[in-house]
Structure formats: C-alpha cells, structure tokens
C-alpha cells in the first residue's frame, strides 16, 4: 500500500476549513432566509449550478483515472458506459449503478493485469 507522509498541520487545516465552510453553508440560510430566497441571482444559481458542478466533477475524476492509468483508458470508458446504461435502464438506483460500473472497471483492470502477468511466464 502506498504510504503518504502528510504534514499534520496540513491535515488539520483541511479538516477545519472543510468544517467551517460546510457549517456556514448549512447554517447561514436559516439566519438570512428571506433576503436569500428573494434574490433572483441566488434562485438562478440554485437552478443552474448542480448539474454543471456534478458534470465537471465527473469529467475531472474520469480524467484523473485516465491520466493515472493510461493503459486502461478503454476500461475506464467502458465502465462509464456500464454506469450510464445501468443507471438509465435499471431505474436510477444509484447504489446499483455505481456498483455495476465500479465492478466492471475493477474486473477489466485486473483481467488486464492478470493477462500481462500470464504473458511474463
């Protein structure tokens, strides 16, 4: 297993930052409910933001997988296809779709590795 040496101050800074931002996001609207609700800009952002942020996260994590392991680019794309297909055809059950996609990727990646090992001997 890779061992990562991390500065404890860095970890503490991350945890405190994340905690503060999360709590602020969850608590602030209760304090300032009305003006927020009335703001046309906030209402538009509510509507527009989620889909794009999630699409960017999907793209960034897929790109990360492709960069980390370029040899398995096809496996990653197949696994994305499996995820989408299971999600749309299987009634949008997140756990099922994520499970199927991840299983497909793990299977393909390890089959490749097994094949490569077999080729060595």
């Amino acid at each position: 297993m890779p061992d990562v040496t991390l500065d404890p101050w860095y970890l503490a800074a991350v945890l405190v930052t994340v905690f503060a931002i999360n709590l602020t996001l969850r608590a602030a609207p209760f304090a300032a409910l009305k003006p927020l609700r009335a703001s046309a800009l906030v209402r538009s952002l509510t509507l527009w933001m989620p889909v794009g942020v999630l699409a960017i996260l999907a793209a960034v994590t897929l790109r990360g997988t492709l960069i980390d392991d370029p040899a398995n680019a096809v496996s990653a794309l197949v696994a994305v296809g499996v995820t989408v297909a299971v999600h749309l055809l299987g009634g949008r059950r997140t756990l099922l779709s994520v499970g199927a996609g991840t299983f497909a990727y793990v299977l393909l990646v390890n089959l490749d590795a097994a094949g490569a090992l077999a080729g060595l001997f």
């Binding site: 999630l54 897929l62 997988t65 990653a76 999600h87 997140t94 991840t102 793990v106």
Partner: peptide, 20 residues
C-alpha cells in the same frame, strides 16, 4: 483492490444524470 477508486467517478456520473 486495483480500480476501486473508480466508484467516485461512477457516483458523479449517476448524479449528473439525475440532475440533467
């Protein structure tokens, strides 16, 4: 387990589909 981290990508793909 090699490849398990793909779960995160798969999660974001399904969440994108649900919001789009």
């Amino acid at each position: 387990v090699k490849g398990l981290e793909f779960a995160l990508c798969a999660l974001f793909v399904t969440l994108t589909l649900d919001t789009a």
